[in-house]
């Protein structure tokens, strides 16, 4: 049995701490937004979780390319880890977005490009897991997984552009225009600190989870191998 690396334990503690601080900053330190009120505080976690989703999305695409070039199952394990993290965090981001949208736009859901692209990516990833489930043979599963991840990675930006062409009402950040009625606002200095710290904390969390999940995947592969040898 492989021992848990010390660096990973340190990372566990670090991500727990930074999450605590980020929560404090978002809930107490940052000033209340004038128009939207307290609900705007969900924004710090909404963006940060979406950011983790995006990191996972990029990592999955990269791992997909690497698998098709190298045909090394290591990259398949990494890809699955990235897709899983992305799936979970995009889901959280979408849920938080809904909580924010309800009082501000008076609707749970808007067909905004970013939100919809994230939702479509969720569907792509669910399809990805269905595809994998339908294939027993390890290498073919890895190959098809990589191919579909790449198709998903390429389609996401096109989907985004297509929906933007369709219509948009998402707030544009940092744009200081006074369109508060549409949900736009500018970041006050206190908000800025909370915002960037949340991004930082969730980036650490991403690395931590990614590492754990890859490790889990490797151990699972070893269990499979041991079972085969025993059988």
């Amino acid at each position: 049995m492989e021992r848990k690396p010390l660096a990973l334990t340190v990372l566990d503690i670090l991500s727990a701490l930074s999450l605590l601080i980020a929560t404090y900053l978002a809930l107490f330190y940052a000033p209340t937004e004038a128009v939207m009120g307290a609900v705007q505080r969900v924004f710090y976690f909404h963006v940060a979780t979406a950011w983790v989703g995006l990191l996972g999305f990029l990592a999955a695409g990269f791992a997909g390319v690497m698998y098709l070039v190298r045909h090394d199952l290591k990259w398949d394990v990494i890809e699955v880890a990235a897709v899983e993290i992305s799936l979970v965090f995009f889901f959280i981001a979408i849920a938080l977005g809904s909580i924010w949208a309800r009082p501000v736009w008076n609707t749970w859901w808007t067909w905004d490009p970013r939100l919809t692209t994230a939702a479509i990516t969720e569907l792509v990833y669910l399809a990805y897991f269905m595809l994998r489930q339908g294939i027993e043979e390890v290498e073919r599963r890895a190959r098809f997984g990589a191919v579909y991840t790449l198709i998903g990675a390429v389609s996401a930006p096109v989907t985004f552009m297509a929906i933007r062409l369709f219509r948009t009402i998402h707030p544009v950040l940092f744009g200081a225009s006074s369109e508060a009625a549409k949900g736009e606002f500018s970041l006050a200095p206190g908000m800025r600190v909370a915002f960037f710290f949340a991004l930082f904390a969730f980036t650490i969390l991403f690395v931590d989870l990614f590492w754990h999940r890859i490790r889990l995947g490797r151990l699972a592969a070893r269990v499979d191998q041991a079972r085969l040898q025993a059988g």
Partner: peptide
């Protein structure tokens, strides 16, 4: 791809439709 998977016909629309959105629009 779907034809080589166990779930075959069930799988194709599930794989295809999410990446089809720009085309639909």
């Amino acid at each position: 791809m779907s034809i080589q998977a166990r779930t075959r016909d069930l799988l194709l629309p599930i794989l295809l439709f999410p990446v089809l959105l720009p085309l639909v629009i």
